[in-house]
């Protein structure tokens, strides 16, 4: 099956309300999947002979809190990029969650590649993937506080290893900071 609109209609007919909006304006169009239906939709996308998206390219965690005015502004989002290997068809869909309740069901057993991508999205954006076998920080040290790719992330004043072996001040002048007026021109 070719074309995002065909796939969207096909899925909409199958899952109804489980499939949300379709963004055709975007350069790479995408559609929304409601998180309650994510696992069913994901299994269907992988196993349906018409679709057959067996290859997960990446999961991008996004914080939409400072985005332009859209319905999903202020939400957290996991963007799934899929391939169908036989004709290299690409598919993007998104799952939105509220910032207060950032829980998305894990798809690690549907696409095994998701295991690490979900850990990364948890580490950097703070989305919790329910049912993930080993959801811990992957890139940052385990004692790190906060999720750096959130838009309101504040860097800590100092870095300290848990045993106190190393203490470093992290402060530095920042000419590119948003509230720096000389940069606005």
């Amino acid at each position: 099956m070719e074309g995002i609109e065909n796939i969207y209609t096909y899925l909409k007919g199958k899952f109804g309300e489980g499939i949300g909006i379709l963004d055709k304006e975007s350069r790479d169009p995408w559609f929304e999947v409601k998180r309650e239906n994510l696992r069913e939709v994901a299994t269907f996308l992988r196993d349906d002979p018409e679709l057959g998206f067996t290859y997960l390219v990446a999961i991008t965690g996004v914080d939409y809190s400072k985005f332009v005015d859209v319905d999903y502004k202020g939400k957290l989002c996991a963007t799934y990029i899929l391939y169908r290997l036989r004709d290299s068809h690409q598919l993007i869909f998104k799952v939105f969650v509220e910032k207060e309740d950032p829980v998305i069901p894990s798809v690690w057993d549907i696409w095994r590649a998701a295991e690490w991508h979900e850990r990364e999205a948890f580490d950097l954006v703070g989305i919790k993937f329910e049912g993930h076998p080993d959801l811990r920080r992957i890139l940052l040290p385990p004692e790190w506080e906060g999720h750096p790719l959130l838009k309101d992330y504040k860097e800590p004043e100092e870095y300290r290893t848990p045993d106190g072996y190393l203490v470093v001040k992290t402060h530095r002048p920042d000419p590119l900071r948003e509230n720096n007026e000389s940069d606005q021109k």
Partner: peptide
């Protein structure tokens, strides 16, 4: 405004870039 994903075949496999633009001169994500 919108998403784009582009990839090349780098020596270590697909090196893809997923950009999300909010219409400003800097990438949103």
């Amino acid at each position: 405004v919108g998403d784009v994903y582009a990839a090349t075949e780098a020596p270590r496999g697909e090196l893809g870039v997923h950009l999300i633009s909010d219409g400003s001169s800097r990438p949103y994500r």
